[in-house]
Amino acid sequence: MAKRYPVRVKVNGVEYERSVEGRRLLSDFLREDLELTGTHVGCEHGACGACTALLNGQSILSCLALAVQVDGAEILTVEGVADEAKLHPIQEAFWENHALQCGFCTPGMILSALALLKENPRPTEEEIRVGISGHICRCTGYVNIVKAIQTAAEKMAETSQTKGTVQNV
């Protein structure tokens, strides 16, 4: 029997405790062990961005991290982006701007957009393009994806103004 290692991790605000093999990829841990299949796996070598998740608030490729490494950390996957009842402004903007076709790249795009807007709430088109440059959209819908992120930035700026607080991303 291969050796197993304990992992305690908070994913989308929920604490999980599991034991995993050393070689378990974070992407497989999320999908297979936690059954959070929103995180997609395209290439398993860092080339497509579909598996992007936030690790302690930073975007990372979950196919290039081991599950054991996130012991003690906080992870956000696409399942944790929406409020219980309501889509996140980025998700709404993707929907309204037809920024998804087959939807395979969408979870990764949304998480990178989230990380981008948190750091830079009013990005230029160029900055958005750089921000999603690690992602491949096989349906090639980049124009609408960029538009959606622009729309989301505007929406989030408005809500944070009316509420007087920064949108909790």
Partner: peptide, 26 residues
Amino acid sequence: ILAGGQSLLPLLNMRLARPKAIIDIN
């Protein structure tokens, strides 16, 4: 040694590297 894993993990995933032990320095 495993640091950021951005070069090593692809090699492990493709089994181009098969070390017996991984020493994670993170």
